[in-house]
């Protein structure tokens, strides 16, 4: 192993070891299936909990033990018409609860069911070079109001939202990198929910330390950086929006057409509008298959 590789490996170990910091988001099947008429699906569970109250960037007193737990299982699918055009869908199955303060007393709220479905049309331009491959992608998206707004902690917001993202990813035998910027225009929903528009940036950079040609088996180890800005808005109980940067490690293993991914996301910087619960730490694990 040359000194460059040793450096990269050391950096990866360091990042795994000091994950006091935290994670990001990720299009798991960024370049697969890239074959004509290929399709795939992925089941991904995302767990997020926070019991920390923030006022701006500072921790605020939390005498009523306000907290929030969101457990989302994403059912994601992709169909590749040809390598330049793909259709994706993401359906969230949500189970969530929170403690809010109403009338000067803590109140438990919960919600469960199908959330708002996201459809995307990915327009890709791939390049193939000796020793690397990659793609540029533009993805217009639509978020449909398929989630109910009836629960005390609603799983949907009742609005039609439009988004667009631009991404670039590149892969060499030992290195993977991915960059994505996106914008969501959130329109006014039901029950007074009116979330602000959102701008985001995601970055994944990692190494591919192990691959076996005969079994097409291997792993990736990556660092994930996410940045978000959400305009001032509100949900059924209070203000929403703010800025957030998250950082964390990602581990991906694959075997032929099966991929497993696990990641942790820790907020390293948050600045919220008004008084809000921290975004909290995310734990994300999923399995995907392509055909």
């Amino acid at each position: 192993m040359n000194s460059v590789m040793r450096g990269i490996v050391s950096l990866a170990i360091f990042m795994l070891g000091v994950s006091e910091m935290a994670g990001a988001h990720q299009p798991v099947m960024d370049m697969a299936p890239r074959w004509e008429h290929g399709w795939g699906f992925q089941v991904r569970n995302e767990y997020r909990f926070s019991g920390e109250l923030l006022g701006g960037t500072d921790q605020a007193p939390n005498p009523f033990d306000r907290e929030r737990m969101v457990n989302t299982t994403w059912i994601e699918s992709v169909f590749t018409f040809k390598r330049e055009i793909r259709l994706t869908s993401k359906v969230p199955l949500i189970q969530q609860s929170r403690v809010v303060v109403q009338g000067g007393a803590p109140v438990n709220q919960s919600g469960r069911g199908i959330g708002d479905t996201v459809l995307g049309l990915q327009l890709k331009h791939y390049y193939n070079k000796a020793g690397s491959t990659g793609n540029f992608s533009i993805t217009p998206s639509l978020r449909l109001p398929t989630g109910s707004t009836k629960d005390s902690f609603p799983v949907g917001d009742g609005s039609w939202d439009a988004g667009i993202s631009a991404s670039f990813s590149a892969e060499a035998p030992f290195v993977y990198q991915f960059y994505d910027v996106f914008y969501w225009r959130n329109s006014k929903g039901k029950r007074g929910i009116d979330q602000g528009n959102e701008v985001g940036f995601d970055m994944n950079i990692g190494i591919h330390p192990y691959h076996d040609n005969l079994t097409n088996t291997g792993i990736f180890v990556m660092a994930d950086l996410s940045a978000r800005y959400e305009g001032r808005g509100r949900d059924t109980v209070g203000p929403t929006g703010g800025k957030r940067i998250s950082l964390g490690p990602v581990l991906v293993g694959y075997w032929n057409n099966i991929m497993v991914r696990a990641e942790l996301k820790f907020p390293v910087y948050q600045d919220v509008f008004g008084i809000q619960l921290s975004h909290g730490t995310d734990f994300n694990i999923g399995i995907g298959l392509t055909f």
């Binding site: 370049m31 697969a32 299936p33 890239r34 074959w35 290929g38 791939y126 390049y127 193939n128 070079k129 000796a130 020793g131 690397s132 491959t133 892969e171 060499a172 035998p173 591919h208 691959h211 097409n216 291997g218 694959y254 032929n256 057409n257 991929m259 392509t290």
Partner: peptide, 17 residues
């Protein structure tokens, strides 16, 4: 010799075909 066949998870499609 194939340009771009470094993406191990997506190379499955080439192998399968």
């Amino acid at each position: 010799q194939v340009n771009g066949v470094v993406c191990s998870f997506c190379a499955y499609g080439a192998e399968k075909s």
